[in-house]
């Protein structure tokens, strides 16, 4: 038996919305430690990784590890039947082929239940090596979204160059070029607006804006996003879902390299 209750159902809706354009079908793995998911996009250029620790949930029970094979578009459609304020409980029997979704209004006056068919999905799990990144930029997630959107007007590839006191996003396209520099800024009174740079050595890498734009669908999950980079390895964009329990949504993106 698996049962997990999201006290704030809106978080689950945001998580699914932040994954569904990148990944069509996926296995959500449930175990005694929590819920997790790892899936690549169809072109195998990016990967989305979700970790929700059991302590994140209002209540969590998982007697036996199970994989829930889900079509994220269908999942998202059913979740649209929930109200923003609802608590959402997911339930599945061991060896069952349906996922039960229960939506409860705040005052408990309305309870709805839906069943969704589960699928058998062959998923390839990739081993992600533990990496000490040379540069980690933490910035307001809305700022990252805006930069990706603005630079996407000019071109399709962004250069991200990180130095001690700032990070530069630059783009060149048919109609011209542009760049945005974000300087280190520790807004002590508003930590959500801070830009922090942890640097071991300067790093400069290029990435496809199309994927970064899909990653920014997670903006509503966290006020801050972090970008971790090292030379010649995939970028990690992380949105913390819950700081206390180390629950997160992470995206990995392979760099573009000069031929």
């Amino acid at each position: 038996m698996f049962e997990a209750r999201f006290e704030t159902g809106e978080t689950l809706i945001k998580i699914v919305d932040a994954m569904k354009e990148l990944v069509e079908d996926c296995n959500i793995d449930c175990s005694t430690t929590g819920m997790s998911m790892q899936a690549m996009d169809q072109s195998h250029v990016s990967l989305v990784a979700l970790m929700l620790q059991k302590e994140f949930f209002g209540s969590f029970r998982c007697d036996r590890s199970i994989s829930l094979g889900l079509n994220l578009l269908s999942f998202s459609k059913i979740l649209k039947c929930a109200s923003k304020e609802d608590a959402i409980t997911l339930k599945a029997e061991d060896g069952g082929d349906v996922l039960t979704l229960m939506f409860e209004s705040k005052d408990g006056s309305r309870v709805s239940e839906f069943e969704m068919k589960l699928m058998d999905i062959d998923s390839e799990h990739l081993g992600i090596p533990e990496t000490e990144y040379k540069a980690v930029v933490t910035m307001p997630s809305g700022e990252f979204q805006r930069i990706v959107r603005d630079l996407g007007i000019i071109g399709d590839t962004v250069g991200i160059g990180c130095e001690k006191d700032g990070v530069r996003f630059s783009v060149t396209g048919d109609l011209g070029s542009g760049n945005v520099v974000l300087k280190q800024n520790t807004s002590a009174d508003k930590p959500d607006l801070a830009t922090l740079i942890e640097l071991e050595e300067p790093v400069e890498l290029s990435f496809a804006l199309r994927y970064l734009s899909l990653f920014t669908k997670a903006t509503g999950l966290s006020p801050q996003a972090s970008l971790s980079m090292s030379p010649e390895v995939p970028l990690v964009v992380e949105y913390k879902i819950d700081d206390e329990t180390a629950s997160y949504l992470r995206y990995y993106l392979a760099p573009k390299v000069d031929e």
Binding site: E124, G127, P129, S206, A208, K256
Partner: peptide, 14 residues
């Protein structure tokens, strides 16, 4: 021109 790398070039099968 820059070439898009695939993730499999960095992350192996576990």
């Amino acid at each position: 021109p820059r070439k898009q790398r695939k993730l499999g070039q960095f992350f192996g099968a576990p």
